[in-house]
Design a protein around this nucleic acid. Structure first.
Lengths: 195, 195
DNA sequence: TGATTTTATTAACCAAAGTCAATGACGCGC
DNA sequence: GCGCGTCATTGACTTTGGTTAATAAAATCA
């Protein structure tokens, strides 16, 4: 599958596309490649663009007392919406950094308007997608906040095992809200129990 | 201010209303009162309605091993959207219970359609509001998840001091992801440090 | 009001995460 | 291959939250 077609799979979750529409969409979207280590967004910048990951991995984090706190990993097939698709005016507190060479689609409010003019049917799809993201975000909040770090790690293991392969452990630790040393101990505890 | 007018304040965040529109909206919306302890939604029910708090306080929680885990408190001026305004088909895992005598507006998909037919301008307002909620939810996720319980308590103290007055501490503890005994100790630690 | 229930605090002890420091393992460039 | 930096693990010790149980304080209601 070409990376560009990843976005068709995403849209297909919400509606059915004709062959013509699909080809048209692939032709219309703007695609951009980033090198490992590149930033899609830095703290203080106003987010003018939004993204959708076709290939690679983007890490979202912010700084507290100079320390990075990872809040999300976006991989193939995920929309990168640090602010829920809203194009806010305020400068962002988040960084978006590529952990691998990454290919994304790029959207701006202007392109969005053109896109919806061309594919009006997809405007409601967009709304659905945002509501879906909100639901996920709230579920994540409720299941994550009230779990222990070990439970959170097991949860991650169950839902996104790919991340354990491709993301350094100290970033995962930050994502789980613990120090790298603790994650190391958690992993040890689990493998011992598994005997 | 009449409770009904709370919703005008909310809408005013996103757009400007004429005097006529404002009066019309207040006349159109459906208002309902609940007694302390009443449920807006119970686990297993399919959420067919959404709410907006005019007066009072609603607690959202779900059960894990028979234990309540509080995920949100909704007070005056907040939309109650356990699933991002979406009317999902699935039965909810959440309870919505009134901590005080509470007055809310009630919305259904049908009423929503009628409402938007009458005030077409407000459909985009609704979209903005949902995106706003998503932004808030993601911010909450990032600031809460990666903080210690003590930091979370300080955060709550700073952002929603009203809750400390009106909500029993053991519900706050559940919301912060700790046991009531721990919250008690955290409070003690903080008052000692404050000397 | 007094009695009863509900909610909050405190203490003692245990388990788990933080901190600091040292050591290993691995990858990368030279 | 060697050296270097990055990342992961381990150990000793501290801090913090969970657990259990007892007690105190506050709210509720007859």
């Amino acid at each position: 599958m070409k990376p560009e077609e990843e976005i068709l799979r995403y849209i297909a979750q919400f509606t059915t596309l004709s062959q013509g529409e699909a080809e048209d969409i692939v032709k219309t979207i703007k695609v951009k490649a980033f090198k490992k280590g590149a930033f899609l967004l830095k703290e203080g910048q106003v987010a003018k663009l939004c993204y959708f990951v076709l290939k690679g991995c983007v890490r979202q984090y912010f700084l507290v007392d100079g320390e990075e706190r990872t809040t999300n990993f976006y991989t193939e097939g995920q929309p990168v919406t640090p602010y829920g698709g809203t194009f806010r005016q305020e400068p962002s507190k988040y960084y978006l950094s590529c952990l691998e060479d990454t290919i994304v689609t790029v959207g701006s409010p202007e392109q969005e308007a053109l896109f919806f003019a061309k594919f009006p049917r997809l405007e409601s799809v967009s709304r659905l997608a945002i509501e879906e993201e909100l639901g996920k975000s709230q579920d994540q909040l409720s299941t994550f906040i009230l779990s222990s770090p070990e439970e959170r790690y097991r949860q991650l293991l169950a839902t996104r095992p790919d991340l354990l392969e491709r993301v350094p452990q100290y970033h995962l630790a930050s994502y789980l809200g613990v120090k790298p040393e603790s994650l190391s101990r958690i992993r040890k505890r689990i493998t011992i129990k598994a005997d």
